[in-house]
Design a protein around this nucleic acid. Sequence first.
DNA 1: AAGTGGTCTAGACCACTTT
DNA 2: AAGTGGTCTAGACCACTTC
Lengths: 252, 252
Amino acid sequence: MNSHPSNPASDVGASPSFRPLYQQIKALITQSLQSGEWKPGELMPSEVELAGRFKVSQGTVRKAIDELAAENLVVRRQGKGTFVATHAEERAHFRFLRLMPDEGLPHPLENRFVEVRRLRAPAEVARLLELKSGDAVVYIKRVQSFDGEPTILEELWLPGQLFKGLTAERLVEYKGPMYGLFESEFGTRMIRATEKIRAVAADAAASEFLKVAEGTPLLCAERVSFTYGDKAVELRRGLYSTAHHHYLNELS
Amino acid sequence: MNSHPSNPASDVGASPSFRPLYQQIKALITQSLQSGEWKPGELMPSEVELAGRFKVSQGTVRKAIDELAAENLVVRRQGKGTFVATHAEERAHFRFLRLMPDEGLPHPLENRFVEVRRLRAPAEVARLLELKSGDAVVYIKRVQSFDGEPTILEELWLPGQLFKGLTAERLVEYKGPMYGLFESEFGTRMIRATEKIRAVAADAAASEFLKVAEGTPLLCAERVSFTYGDKAVELRRGLYSTAHHHYLNELS
DNA sequence: AAGTGGTCTAGACCACTTT
DNA sequence: AAGTGGTCTAGACCACTTC
């Protein structure tokens, strides 16, 4: 199969806009990831196996997986195989948590849930989550502390549809990042997010929870997270006290 | 040359820690970029040409260039060739400028230089730029406005050694991003940067230049930029008014 | 038509992990 | 020893740009 009169994997007639084979393979693999054929943390089929399944060369599968690895959807380990990426283990914890101490290494952080309940999505939340205004959402409010110092005040909104059994108890007993819980218990894996960051003055609530004076400048990060297919599945609004921490960003 | 009893490009004896060929090629190409053999914006030799020069297959050169393209050091254009990346043209202007208007498209911005002079590096600046305390640095202070509204108050420190002829006149007459001037006039190309972001209260100076009340929360971004070889060549401290703009970050 | 990067294949061998 | 991902090669063809 050295020449390709037609694209073997999913092709009908002459390609009007030309889609490389490896991108089609990548899409197929992504579908399997999304459908849960291989779950987060699990070992995926080997390259030769996938090449056989899709009837393409190993090199083509390889290029597809290369891109998936670059997008952090899978992790390659030489000699062992390719694994589905997971938020549960890996220290890639800091892929989404960018707040670092000004000095020293990142401390472990404590978690205190202030509020967990269901409500109808306000217009603004609905818009960002691509829901209808009034749809059910899970609302979570929590404070995170480093070394006993309250540093992050966070509010989250999740589509109620996707997070049916989510309760305060479940959140409290789960150890590790929330994204780990979301992927293992609710089958929703966050793969990408965009943040808008501003400086704001602490209001009464922020002042109380973060133990700072009202009017203290705080970092405000509004995050929208997406899962497969660029579907928005989380809205998060965090207030960070940056007296002893900073938001770290690598520009490359 | 299907088997490699020894690494052909720069190898002496058995490799103790094994360095892939394509990485060696990548390093050689990077050296040529750094030395200015091909200048920003210029067309580089084709893949086959480089393969011939380095006595490796085109595929190996290709993999090297792939990584350089991923790091934004070069730009590939199908049918035309591979070009050295440049800050001068490209709208990749927004690779380092992350401040976006809350609504609408990014506006063009005006530039007003408040101060340009040489001074001896304070300890903190010297530390971040990896200089000796007291070394000469160029100090620049400027205000940038969107739609006539002052939004960014920025201070820069550059190693005096590298920016000998840099004057206020030269800065004012140059159109486009400063990084374009730096690479074309001073042969220093910014490749990568890290930013630490905090929320701070506007002091008297910020209040004056940004036309906001003292104490207004502002975003403070401290940037250290690097050129080839991870050499620090710029320290920048920006204060952003985030009333109508936000710092945009993609987490992926 | 010629040249460039982009895709795809087939096969060999290397480095690493597990059995 | 066997299996996995990682490297390297050689060659064919495709898509795009320029002459």
